[in-house]
């Protein structure tokens, strides 16, 4: 034991050092390590989360860009298609209109022709009636009072046939 005291070991001091270190450990643990380590951990999880979030946002952005590009391409294609269809439809409609107009014109011409023909016939018919009367009256004048009306009629008929013929 003498060597211990020669080295300066004193139980009182040894115990004092033990207690001092224990107090330091407890105080530092309670008021320094715990809050600071908690803060470290909190920050670590926060940073990890931020990195994950950033990655997710980037991914979403990329998807959105891709989607918008797809939509754009699709829209362009649709527009081209619509234009083409519209062109075709317009042409068809134009052709149809032209065709219809032609038909109409043809029909009108036909109708007019028929009408004219009918008119002509009516005119001829009427003219015939008038001529017959004229012939009768002319013949009456020429012949005077004829006793036999039958002769007159026969004459009229003959004349008419000649005229018609």
């Amino acid at each position: 034991m003498e060597i211990l005291s020669k080295l300066g070991i004193d139980w009182k001091l040894l115990i004092a050092q033990l207690i001092n270190f224990a107090i330091l450990l407890v105080v530092l643990y309670k008021f320094v390590y715990r809050p600071l380590l908690a803060m470290l951990e909190k920050r670590e999880t926060m940073i990890a989360k931020s990195v994950d979030d950033a990655r997710a946002i980037e991914e979403r952005l990329r998807q959105t860009e891709k989607m918008s590009e797809e939509i754009l391409i699709k829209t362009r294609q649709e527009a081209a298609q619509i234009l083409e269809t519209a062109g075709q439809t317009a042409e068809q409609r134009q052709n149809a209109t032209i065709e219809k107009t032609k038909d109409d014109v043809r029909q009108i011409v036909e109708q007019t022709r028929t009408m004219l023909k009918n008119e002509k016939e009516t005119l001829i018919h009427e003219a015939r009636g008038h001529i017959a009367q004229l012939v009768v009256s002319a013949t009456e004048r020429v012949l005077g009072d004829m006793p036999h009306e039958k002769v007159g009629d026969a004459l009229v008929k003959k004349t008419l046939e000649k005229i018609a013929g």
């Binding site: 300066g8 001091l13 040894l14 115990i15 004092a16 050092q17 033990l18 270190f21 224990a22």
Partner: peptide, 15 residues
Amino acid sequence: ATSADLNFTLALAII
């Protein structure tokens, strides 16, 4: 230095 005292170093070693 506290560590230039065997009382401290021994106490710490014991802990």
